[in-house]
Design a binder for these strands. Structure first.
Length: 930
RNA sequence: GGGCGAGUGGCGAAACUGGCAACCGCAUACGCUUCAGGUGCGUACGACCGCAAGGUUUUGGGGGUUCAACUCCCCCCUCGCCCACCA
């Protein structure tokens, strides 16, 4: 109950009870419904308060404004005549209004228009707020809604805080699903994609987000992908793109190359058949040459630690040593990479990968040729699926060769086994079965010697016979001559020095990360802008090279012929994707573009002779790794973006997106940025200074991530029609932290809608006493100013759910009070980022403003006013709550002590006991220890 | 096997820097309102004991530090995600 009203003699004494905030400032029984008028007594009190407060705070007289209906003193409207909140009626209206007024079209102001408040990381006062652009899969799903509508709250808040916000939108429109859908529905991928873009644009508009549609980009637009091709050529000329043979996933049923992410548990994610490995010639980006910087530069980024760690682990840098062992009886060496040379005294065998260089080059030296051949053939045929099914079972074949361990002079048999991977390290492993589980398994299989060279804390020195005894962690070295007694870290460094001194090997660094295979033998992608010319290759020699240094062109072999690889000149870009009717993948693992006869044959840009285009297209991750740059200058015909515009917006202060891109899109974008920086084409080396991940919206019935392919139970369009976009937006914000996963809850949505209904009725509420309220009560004012503070801080720190809850709390507290127009306006401003349509309607139509609420400044709260609020002080005796009292803020310990010791309940609790300690935490709690 | 994250009412969740655990909302119950309601308003609502006042107890489990622990430290359990024979 609101006790304060009986004893207002000064502002100081206006008290809030310790009760729930919901009852604060509430006039019981007044103004609750249509035509209900408070009794004359309450009126009197209310008016008295207004007068007293007005006298006390005369600086706060409320400006009088004309209003069309609702609160106007000139026009009393009963609630029964009041318009009901009807989102469908107002939302489209305001969306159109904002678009007509170009409210969200960001101007390319030069930086530093106003001092930065939120972050020092982006340029001047400009703030590009980015959410990963969507793939036009057909329908906007609830996940999109969540991903885009919640950051819009932040964007609107920034805008109200004086930032020049750009919230761009576009489509990542190339990719395999378009082809699949096209094949299925007998429609061209381009038509399918464009249709989807049209539909999804409309759906995105229904969100009421502050998207800047004037900057829309689409990766399938030739004016966009011309620059994707241009960037490829820059990287090619810089030696950062090259062609090489590599193992790729091959689906024998669909006759196509699959990206790693299209292989699920060794099966094609489309047809389910077992995926094979094929060796194909592919275009690659040299991402590994930036591996160290991709790790090191993470430390300055404001990213989730989990994302940073995911990238570090993905890059997988390890520091070890390459050891060369002489092979007995022949004049060759075998090189192994190991991170644990400290265990080398326990090495008893060597294993090489079936497709390793060592096997390829030394086949004729193997004694048991037939067996080796058989094993190689088998392991090549074996699909990933079979390997997975086999589990960890180790197979292998002896080559007949022995390597000599220099440290022990032991002969180590060399085996071939497919548990060793050709692409890791040197493709050869030294077997230390005592201290590596895989080595132990292999040793057991082949009956090889196991030696213990590390003992753990338990000091167990017994021979190792069981897998549980294999020890990989910390310990002390034994049985290793001069390493004995050292811990494994000391031993590792000592033995590395020793091996290097002896010339037996060299320290080496290894990465898990491999170069980025960007070729796709698919139709629906950006053509790689290169031409193969036989003639150029024929006339080129060391005296008359066809390429100068800058061009970076190369000669390469293909099907036994020599070709010069000639980049398409800049003025001939874009190399447009030919309008193929038959875009089914070809049988010979060549791209469908090979079927485009006319397009394929070109005059060589270098020599003018007949030549052929590259038929591979690019991985769509190339398209999406630079799109944010294009947003700064989307219509530029001369450059991918002007330096001037990029300087105004980049690097990005904040990037919202899904955690599934931790190691894909985010790493690729960082690489492309660093590659362009290395060529002085941009002046920043990290694209995204800040990063926030969002969670997924799960299907409440299946518990799975919502997606088009799996069919979705919740159609956002239906929900918008039912509840309105504002309710949807607010619900998504309210559900909980942005980075968590949620199931759609139909009932909870209703709660948010109820809140907006109440907001609507509250602001529209006619005055009950036929009097213009001059100013609200101090309690109400404090409540509103608290909301300004709390809602603002919540949005600023991306705690959107807390922001909504603070707004609700505020309404609960003021709902049954009189509010001045200024008070109403403050509330509507706080609501504006969350529910932009209803806020605009209330702002302009009800409160009678002439310009958009979204152009308003975020209100400032009155700190002095907040200090006037009484706080609840908890009194504990021996950490048990004995009473709570309402006191003014900032009391000293002595003052509090006096009050507390005078308290009856406390006296009772203290009876006959001696106070040992008096703890006082200002404005919060006291604890008396007895 | 490795890495990361999370465990708080019937549910989504809140809790600033160690300071009243459960704000806000949903669901539920009861009352009022309504011709009717997926309506509106009000009250109650972690659990246990109690008519009540009040008491006891509670943040996955166990221990520790502290006047005070959801929060800090140690051990354990469960779940989720990512990578996975990485030498």
């Amino acid at each position: 109950m609101w006790r304060g009203r009986q004893r207002i003699t000064s502002i100081r004494q206006v008290t809030f009870t310790a009760g729930p905030a919901a009852t604060v400032g509430r006039f019981q029984g007044s103004g609750q419904g249509p035509g209900v008028h408070p009794g004359p007594f309450l009126f009197l009190i209310k008016n008295c308060i207004s007068v007293i407060v007005g006298l006390l705070r005369c600086q706060n007289t409320t400006p009088q404004r004309p209003r069309r209906f609702g609160r106007g003193a000139d026009k009393i409207v009963g609630l029964e005549k009041m318009k009901k909140y009807n989102p469908n009626k107002i939302e489209r209206k305001w969306q159109k209004y904002w678009e007509d007024k170009k409210l969200y079209e960001a101007k390319d102001f030069s930086g530093g228009k106003e001092p930065r408040k939120m972050t020092s990381s982006s340029r001047g006062n400009n703030f590009m707020l980015l959410v990963e652009f969507p793939y036009p899969s057909g329908d906007l799903h609830t996940g999109h809604w969540f991903a885009f509508s919640v950051p819009d709250i932040y964007g609107r808040y920034l805008r109200m805080n004086g930032f020049n916000v750009m919230y761009p939108i576009g489509f990542d429109a190339f990719g395999l699903p378009a082809e699949n859908a096209a094949i299925k529905n007998n429609i061209h991928p381009r038509d399918w994609t464009k249709k989807n873009i049209t539909k999804m644009s409309k759906q995105l508009r229904s969100m009421g987000a502050g998207f800047d549609w004037s900057r829309e980009v689409s990766t399938i637009d030739p004016e966009y992908y011309r620059w994707t091709q241009w960037i490829f050529i820059q990287l090619y000329n810089a030696g950062l793109a090259y062609r090489a043979e590599t193992l790729v996933n091959w689906c024998p049923n669909d006759k196509t190359v699959l990206a790693n992410e299209q292989v699920i548990d060794g099966k094609c994610d489309r047809c389910g058949s077992a995926v094979e490995q094929r060796n194909l010639s592919q275009w690659m980006f040299k991402i590994t040459s930036f591996a160290d910087r991709l790790i090191d530069d993470l430390k300055d980024l404001d990213w989730p630690e989990s994302t940073k760690l995911a990238q570090i682990n993905w890059i997988g840098k390890s520091e070890g040593i390459n050891i060369n062992y002489d092979v007995e009886g022949v004049n060759i060496q075998i090189t192994v990479y190991t991170t644990r040379p400290d265990t080398n005294f326990g090495a008893t065998f060597i294993v090489v990968a079936p497709d390793s260089k060592f096997v390829k080059e030394n086949k004729e030296l193997f004694s048991n040729e037939d067996e080796v051949k058989k094993y190689l053939a088998e392991s090549k045929k074996k699909s990933d699926l079979e390997r997975i099914a086999e589990g960890r079972k180790k197979t292998g074949v002896f080559t007949g060769l022995y390597a000599v361990n220099n440290l022990t002079d032991k002969k180590m048999p060399i085996y071939i086994s497919d548990f060793v991977l050709a692409t890791v390290g040197t493709g050869a492993v030294v077997g230390v079965p005592g201290h590596d589980v895989r080595d132990f398994e292999f040793a057991q299989e082949k009956g090889l010697e196991v030696i213990r060279v590390v003992v753990g804390k338990d000091d167990d020195t017994s021979p190792i016979t069981k897998i549980e005894q294999v020890q990989e962690g910390a310990g002390i070295i034994v049985n290793s001559k001069f390493l004995n007694g050292l811990d494994i870290h000391e031993a590792t460094e000592k033995i590395k020095d020793y091996i290097e001194e002896k010339g037996w090997g060299k320290r080496a660094v290894n990465y898990r990360l491999h170069d980025w295979v960007l070729s796709r033998q698919r139709y629906w992608g950006v053509p790689i802008p290169l031409v193969f010319c036989e003639h150029c290759a024929a006339i080129s020699n060391s005296q008359f090279p066809v390429f100068n240094d800058k061009e970076g062109g190369t000669i390469m072999e293909r099907n036994g012929k020599r070709y010069a690889v000639v980049p398409v000149p800049e003025n001939e870009l874009p190399v447009k994707l030919p309008p193929l009717k038959d875009f089914m993948p070809a049988d010979d693992s060549r791209s469908p573009l090979a079927k485009a006869g006319k397009w394929l044959k070109v005059k060589c840009p270098k020599c003018g002779q007949p030549a052929e285009r590259e038929t591979d297209t690019m991985d769509t991750f190339v398209d999406s790794s630079w799109y944010y740059m294009r947003y700064t200058d989307p219509k530029n015909e001369k450059e991918f973006a002007s330096q001037e515009n990029m300087a105004k917006w980049l690097p990005l202060p904040l990037y919202f997106g899904g955690a599934e891109h931790n190691t894909m899109h985010l790493l690729y974008s960082r690489f492309i940025t660093k590659a362009l920086r290395s060529q002085n084409l941009i002046d920043f080396s990290e694209p995204f200074l800040g990063r926030r991940n969002h969670g997924f919206i799960m299907d409440s019935t299946t518990g799975q991530k919502m997606s088009k392919s799996k069919g979705q139970a919740v159609d956002p369009d239906e929900q918008v029609a039912k509840y309105g976009a504002d309710t949807m937006r607010m619900y998504f914000a309210f559900m909980g932290p942005y980075d968590q996963n949620y199931a759609w809850n139909f009932d909870s949505v209703l709660g948010v809608r109820r809140f907006l209904d109440r907001v609507w009725n509250f602001v529209n509420k006619p005055t009950t006493d036929n009097q213009q309220p001059t100013t609200e009560s101090p309690e109400v004012r404090i409540t509103i100013h608290k909301a300004i503070k709390n809602v603002g801080e919540a949005i600023k720190s991306h705690r959107f759910n807390v922001g909504v809850s603070e707004l609700m709390k505020c309404l609960n507290a003021i709902e049954h009070s009189e509010l001045s127009v200024v008070g109403c306006e403050l509330f509507v401003k706080l609501l504006a980022p969350f529910a932009p349509h209803i806020a605009e309607e209330l702002w302009m139509e009800v409160l009678g403003n002439k310009t958009s609420v979204h152009l308003e400044k975020w209100p400032e709260f009155n700190e002095a006013l907040l200090l006037e609020e009484l706080v609840t002080l908890v009194i504990q005796v021996n950490s048990r709550v004995r009473d709570t009292i309402s006191v003014r803020q900032g009391l000293s310990e002595d003052e509090v002590k006096k009050i507390v010791l005078a308290n009856e309940k406390i006296q009772k609790a203290l009876e006959g006991k001696e106070i040992k300690k008096f703890i006082y935490i200002q404005d919060r709690l006291t604890n008396i220890v007895v």
